[in-house]
Amino acid sequence: MSFSQLCNTIFDATTEHYHEFDNVDATPVNPYKEGSIEFLLFSKNWIDAVQWHLEDIIRNPEIDPVEALKIKRRIDHSNQERTDLVEFIDGYFMEKYQGVVPQKEAGLNTETPAWAVDRLSILALKIYHMKQETLRSNASPEHKATCQKKLDVLLTQRVDLSGAIDELLADIEAGRKYMKLYKQMKMYNDPALNPVLYKTGK
């Protein structure tokens, strides 16, 4: 099984697991050994699934403004967790390939493996929800047909992205490319860097 196949298998299963509860406050059952790459992939997709539904909830035009603010801050926290997990996954790759000596002409990719994996996780959620739209009993035939076309595109995107991830990992392993781990250095959550926070002393 290629790495992208492992990702897609775990992401699909995790997305299904979330929808057993369909509740943003549900507690997941991560079946993998803590610290393993499988554990990290499950955790990544669970965060994405919860955030997906928080984004749906906050767009309710009748939502209470106070509740909306609470959800917005929860989304901000979720984004930080998501970024941290991506960096953990990249740390796994850095450790795995630390002994590889890059070839003289080796170059960098435009994104690290884990940020590509992040896109793969989101694609799993898009595929799941678009498929649900094609099955909606109260949707028109036209709506279902439109969603089926979008689903076909999403499935093609997953094939292409999966292949690109596996190719990138093969290139890193062979020394044709190398990777660097850049911390995202998000500023808005840091009271020392966000001027709104440090000017108010909060």
Rank of each mutant, 00 (worst) to 15 (best):
104 K>N: 07
105 E>I: 01
105 E>P: 00
105 E>A: 10
105 E>G: 00
106 A>F: 02
106 A>R: 03
107 G>N: 04
108 L>S: 01
109 N>Y: 12
109 N>Q: 05
109 N>T: 02
110 T>F: 10
110 T>A: 08
111 E>Y: 11
112 T>S: 15
112 T>P: 04
112 T>V: 13
112 T>K: 10
114 A>F: 00
115 W>A: 03
115 W>P: 00
115 W>Y: 13
115 W>H: 10
116 A>D: 04
117 V>L: 15
119 R>D: 01
121 S>N: 11
121 S>T: 12
123 L>M: 01
123 L>C: 00
124 A>V: 03
126 K>T: 02
126 K>L: 11
126 K>E: 05
127 I>S: 06
128 Y>H: 14
128 Y>K: 11
129 H>L: 05
129 H>R: 12
129 H>P: 00
130 M>A: 09
131 K>Q: 14
131 K>W: 08
132 Q>V: 06
132 Q>P: 03
133 E>F: 09
133 E>H: 12
133 E>R: 15
133 E>N: 12
134 T>D: 04
134 T>M: 04
135 L>F: 14
135 L>G: 07
136 R>W: 12
136 R>D: 15
137 S>C: 06
137 S>P: 03
137 S>V: 15
139 A>H: 09
139 A>Y: 14
139 A>I: 11
140 S>M: 05
141 P>M: 09
142 E>G: 07
142 E>A: 14
142 E>Y: 12
144 K>Q: 15
144 K>R: 15
145 A>Y: 11
146 T>L: 14
146 T>P: 00
146 T>Y: 12
147 C>K: 15
148 Q>Y: 10
148 Q>L: 15
149 K>S: 13
150 K>S: 11
151 L>P: 01
152 D>N: 14
152 D>Y: 09
152 D>H: 13
152 D>C: 07
153 V>C: 03
154 L>A: 15
155 L>K: 15
155 L>I: 15
158 R>G: 02
160 D>A: 15
160 D>P: 02
161 L>N: 00
161 L>Y: 00
161 L>F: 00
162 S>M: 03
162 S>D: 03
163 G>I: 02
163 G>S: 10
164 A>W: 11
164 A>I: 09
166 D>V: 07
166 D>P: 04
166 D>H: 06
166 D>C: 04
167 E>H: 07
167 E>K: 10
167 E>V: 03
167 E>W: 03
167 E>N: 07
167 E>I: 02
169 L>K: 09
169 L>M: 08
170 A>W: 01
170 A>F: 02
171 D>Y: 04
172 I>F: 10
172 I>E: 06
173 E>N: 10
173 E>T: 05
173 E>H: 09
173 E>S: 13
174 A>W: 05
174 A>G: 08
175 G>E: 02
175 G>T: 00
175 G>A: 04
176 R>W: 04
176 R>V: 02
177 K>P: 01
178 Y>G: 02
180 K>T: 06
181 L>R: 11
182 Y>E: 05
183 K>L: 08
183 K>E: 04
184 Q>M: 02
185 M>V: 09
185 M>G: 07
185 M>K: 13
185 M>F: 11
